[in-house]
Simulated assay, not measured.
Amino acid sequence: MVVKPEWLRVKAPQWERVGSVKEILRDLELNTVCEEASCPNIGECFNAGTATFLIMGPACTRACPYCDIDFEKKPKALDPTEPTRLAEAVRRMNLNHVVITSVNRDDLPDGGASQFVRCIEGIRAVSPKTTIELLIPDLCGNWDALATILSASPEVLNHNTETIPRLYRRVRPQGDYARSLELLQKVQELNPHVYTKSGIMVGLGETDEEVRETMRDLRASNCDILTIGQYLQPTQKHLDVKDFVTPEQFDAWREYGESIGFLQVVSTPLTRSSYHAEQVRALMEQYPR
Score class of each variant (00 low, 15 high):
L146V: 08
P192Y: 10
Y195A: 09
I200V: 14
L157V: 10
C119R: 00
Q174L: 14
R92V: 04
V103S: 03
I136N: 00
G229R: 02
I132P: 02
V187E: 11
T214V: 02
E206W: 05
S102K: 01
G203D: 07
S102V: 13
I225V: 02
S153W: 00
W143F: 04
M93Q: 09
T161F: 08
D107L: 11
R118Q: 13
T130W: 08
I120P: 08
S180D: 02
I228S: 03
G205T: 01
L167I: 14
T130N: 14
H159G: 10
G205A: 11
N94E: 07
E213D: 07
R92A: 07
P109D: 13
E182N: 05
V187S: 07
V211M: 07
H97V: 14
D224I: 01
I132A: 12
D144S: 15
L135N: 15
E121M: 04
V202N: 11
P192T: 07
L190H: 00
N96H: 06
G111H: 08
T130G: 06
R212Q: 14
T163F: 09
P109F: 13
V103F: 05
G203E: 12
S102I: 04
K197M: 03
V126S: 07
V194K: 08
T148S: 11
R166D: 14
L108W: 11
L95P: 00
S153M: 03
T101Y: 00
V99S: 15
M215N: 04
C140M: 06
D110Q: 09
L181T: 00
T196W: 06
R216H: 12
F116N: 01
D144C: 09
R170E: 01
L181A: 11
A152L: 10
I228W: 01
E133N: 07
A220C: 01
N104C: 09
I136S: 06
E213W: 01
A125M: 08
N94M: 02
A125H: 04
G111R: 08
D144L: 06
L167R: 10
W143R: 13
I164E: 02
R179Q: 12
E162R: 15
I200Y: 04
V126P: 11
Q188N: 15
H97E: 15
E189M: 02
A145L: 15
M215S: 00
V171T: 13
A178Y: 12
V187M: 10
R179E: 04
L226E: 01
E209M: 10
T227I: 12
D106M: 11
L183S: 08
V187T: 10
E209T: 13
L181Y: 14
R179N: 05
L190S: 01
P154A: 00
G205D: 09
N104H: 08
H193W: 07
H97D: 15
I200S: 05
R170Y: 00
E210S: 09
T131G: 12
A113F: 06
A152F: 02
E162C: 12
R179H: 15
S114F: 03
N158D: 13
I228E: 00
I228N: 08
L134E: 06
D144G: 12
Y168L: 13
R118V: 05
Q185E: 08
L204H: 03
G205C: 13
S102M: 05
N160Y: 13
D107E: 07
